[in-house]
Design a binder for these strands. Structure first.
Lengths: 113, 113
DNA sequence: TATATTTACTTCAACAGATGAAGTACTCCA
DNA sequence: TGGAGTACTTCATCTGTTGAAGTAAATATA
């Protein structure tokens, strides 16, 4: 079973999270489930990786947080939602461009079978 | 100008070096020039990255070093050459497999234009 | 011949992102 | 009543990358 090493995916955790937030605001647990589903369980983001990415990206102005209740009555558990900012959208797009370049570069050294 | 961030390439510096050593033994300066040429200068490996990769990979048994003279008379500058081991070849192959998986995963989150 | 550039490294300290361990607390279902 | 699931937080540690700086021989240029 081939596994993805963290050193490879390192540069793209933020991009994955942002790509999910492009559609609508979301929160940690939900985003981690989505990443799992989208990748057919090939990649499962670690909790600490995810939450530290939130902190970092909020500091960088790529996302904004807001607290919301799980149900409208307000008698349920609180969640911290995140929404992507314009700066985040720009960053995401630059990462997509970077990916094309990275792929070209890495593939010069990869032998396909 | 799109630039490759070190966090992206992190997992593949070793792979690039090994891919060059697959053909024949080589040394630092030569390998760095080859990476530059092969990638059309899109990626230039930093000296410290390169030499720390050598140390790490030798420790892991992926490469072996030997010192050789630049010309047969032995009156020239010494170089440390590296040669890939069987373990290194295995590692390289596993990295190639991993790459295919990584590419699939990342591309689920990338928007092409 | 003097000097600048290229070749070929080494050492070291600092940094950033990923991660394991551990803990908290609430909800839901059997 | 208790276990699984949800939804996080804190903290210490690790690894690979990097900048800065230094060394020294070989080669090109003036």
């Amino acid at each position: 079973m081939v596994e993805i090493s963290s050193d490879v995916i390192r540069g793209y955790n933020d991009t994955m999270i942002l790509s999910i937030l492009l559609k609508e605001p979301s929160y940690g647990y939900e985003i981690s489930k989505q990443i799992k589903t989208i990748t057919d369980e090939k990649y499962i983001i670690k909790e600490t990786t995810l939450y530290s990415a939130f902190t970092r990206m909020e500091k960088n102005g790529f996302i904004e947080s807001f607290v919301a209740e799980q149900d409208p009555e307000g008698n349920s558990k609180k969640r911290t939602y995140y929404r992507i900012t314009d700066k985040g959208r720009e960053y995401y797009e630059s990462k997509c461009e970077e990916w094309e370049l990275t792929k070209d570069v890495v593939e010069k050294f990869i032998q396909l079978r």
